[in-house]
Design a protein around this nucleic acid. Structure first.
Lengths: 152, 152
DNA sequence: TACCCAATTGCGAAGATGTCGCAAATGCCT
DNA sequence: AGGCATTTGCGACATCTTCGCAATTGGGTA
């Protein structure tokens, strides 16, 4: 399970449950290991933005020997499958969540407040960037920094 | 020279030359050291996006003993004065440039291409974020990721 | 069901980037 | 020229992430 999943191969793929994802993992030559299953259960069970360390702690609550590096490797694998995505919320560690939950973020550089935003907000920029630069933006991967209302 | 410069104190401040900046440094209780001067000369002399290591290499070409940590400290100081700004271009180290040159960036997640963009492009998003979220965006600090025309 | 082998894991080391403490050196004011 | 606060060189440390490697394990096959 090492190559990225081409978009066309994802047609009809169902990421709606841990078992479905694990079935996909096997289809791709991967193994349904217990650390993988527990990690997925944690991810399916939250809508928070968790760092690799957070996830390791949650997984280790149920399987203490799972190593942080295993978490990182599984996160990479699941990301290549398109099941999860990671986001950079300003400085600090990356955070991970189910790809289906992806959305944009505004982070206040002063107080650190995070505002989650619907993609519609980026429709205008997406169109302009496409028209003027030929660039297709991904508003999810990196947060937009600035000042929140309270701090500005 | 440890406190940030309040915006009102910047009225009329002239950052247009190394000597002017150094004069400001002194005004604020700092010293016009040679590592500071050389670093500023390097920064004034390029419009590229240089990492701390890049800058250290450039400075060390003229003063071999300047340590990387000195570069970091001087960059912090100059940033607090508002002379320079740093930008995150996707993964990898921060890059630094004169604040007067600041602009937005689009980075292709596939090929790494960087497109520099005028701020006008963000006018719509800036207004929408302000209206709907009370949030004032800083489009310079973090790049917008996505796919360039060639890769999408 | 036992076997086999590639996929995965635990573990520690190492890499990348940035920060810090401290004693020595150095601007700059008088 | 002297005094002293600022700055510097240097190495250690902090944080986040990746990697090498030998041991383990999932799961298809006989």
């Amino acid at each position: 399970m090492s190559k990225p999943l081409a978009p066309r191969d994802q047609v009809g793929v169902d990421f709606s449950s841990v078992d479905n994802v694990l079935a996909l993992v096997r289809e791709r030559g991967g193994r349904a290991t217990s650390s993988r299953r527990i990690l997925l259960e944690v991810l399916f069970d939250t809508d928070a933005h968790l760092s690799a360390e957070d996830l390791a702690a949650a997984v280790q609550a149920r399987a203490p020997d799972v190593h942080l590096s295993t978490i990182y490797r599984n996160l990479d694998d699941l990301q290549r499958l398109g099941v999860i995505a990671h986001t950079h919320l300003g400085h600090g560690p990356s955070t991970y969540q189910l790809a289906s939950l992806a959305h944009a973020h505004f982070i206040c550089e002063e107080c650190g407040a995070m505002i989650e935003a619907p993609d519609e907000l980026f429709a205008g920029l997406a169109r302009t960037a496409k028209d003027k630069l030929g660039f297709t933006i991904d508003p999810h991967h990196f947060a937009i920094l600035g000042r929140c209302g309270a701090c500005s």
